[in-house]
């Protein structure tokens, strides 16, 4: 029990961030129209690619003779980059099509 309480008070900053972020996340997309569900999901997918930072840290900390860590880190960097780059590019491609255009037919207005 005490160790849990200690852990909470040691990490209270982080716990606050987590709780506040949960509310921000819910609030921020609360009123998204269903048209944007797919691009939003794809955009969120790209954002969690921030895990790449962890991969870079793992890679950068690995000692040169620690092959397992090197391989794990290298794979993680590749996969993370795929997630980030692919995610943002796919989202951009989806959204490119939502560009506001002048209605071509005079009937439309």
């Amino acid at each position: 029990m005490e160790s849990i309480l200690n852990w909470i008070s040691d990490n209270q900053q982080i716990i606050y961030i987590v709780i506040l972020m949960i509310f921000v996340g819910i609030e921020v997309i609360g009123r998204v129209p269903s048209v944007l569900h797919t691009p939003l999901m794809s955009g969120a997918n790209a954002i969690h690619g921030v895990v790449i930072i962890g991969a870079i840290i793992v890679m950068g900390k690995a000692e040169a003779d620690n092959y397992l860590a090197l391989v794990l880190g290298f794979l993680a960097v590749i996969l993370g980059t795929l997630n980030v780059v692919g995610g943002f590019v796919v989202t951009d491609r989806m959204l490119e099509m939502f560009k506001k255009k002048k209605p071509p037919s005079p009937k439309g207005v």
Binding site: N11, I14, I17, V18, M21, I22, F23, V24, G25, I26, V28, I29, G30, V32, H37, L40, M41, A44, N45, I47, H48, V50, V51, I53, G54, I57
Partner: peptide, 23 residues
């Protein structure tokens, strides 16, 4: 993010976790 005490990973991850669940 928690492991490396990295706030960008933490906020990004939780943000997507919450928004993704709502979505």
């Amino acid at each position: 993010g928690f492991l490396y005490d990295n706030k960008a990973m933490l906020t990004g991850g939780i943000l997507v976790g919450a928004a993704g669940t709502l979505l």
